[in-house]
Design a protein around this nucleic acid. Structure first.
Length: 159
DNA sequence: CCCTGATTCGC
DNA sequence: GCGAATCAGG
């Protein structure tokens, strides 16, 4: 017979002790060696006994193996379909941070700080980028109706 | 580094 | 349902 470790008696004591404001570790101690602090926390949570939440803004997705190793996401300029039909972008950087001059595309290549880091260097078409990279970097996303109204000077002001 | 409670997920 | 793992904050 596999009686749950959480007997009625233990649950009763848990509720009482939790109500007294004891800490999970202290409760785990009193409930016996079978009950760990985590077990207490888990049970408390499961019972919905969560002590008055101090309005803690849920900062992030958390929990066991939420993101075990994928914690760092590669953040690199993504290359959507726009690049396919755009004028050629160089395979390798043709300028460096030090060498790049006015009129040269400043699209980054490689990892900043590493020796191979460089800049596109092609002739600027728009802003700081050549045509190919401007197509990627200056994508204008469709603006919401609210955004358009705000931009037009019609703030949504009910009063 | 110790502690706290909170949260998630594999079992 | 259970609780270890892992989080943020003190």
């Amino acid at each position: 017979m596999s009686a749950s470790v959480w007997t009625v008696e233990r649950i009763r004591r848990l509720i009482a002790l939790w109500g007294e404001g004891r800490t999970a570790a202290a409760i785990a101690d009193r409930l016996g060696p079978e009950i760990s602090r985590c077990a207490v926390l888990g049970k408390v949570h499961r019972l919905g006994l969560v002590r008055a939440a101090p309005a803690r803004p849920p900062s992030r997705p958390r929990g066991a193996s939420a993101f075990p190793k994928r914690r760092f996401q590669q953040v690199a300029p993504s290359r959507p379909a726009s690049q396919v039909s755009s004028p050629a972008a160089p395979e390798r950087p043709e300028a460096t941070v030090l060498s790049v001059r006015r009129g040269q595309c400043r699209w980054p290549y490689g990892t900043p700080g590493s020796v191979d880091f460089g800049l596109c260097g092609h002739a600027v078409a728009r802003g700081a980028f050549c045509a190919a990279h401007a197509a990627i970097g200056y994508q204008t996303r469709p603006m919401s109706a609210e955004g358009l109204m705000r931009l037009a000077g019609f703030g949504h002001d009910p009063s």
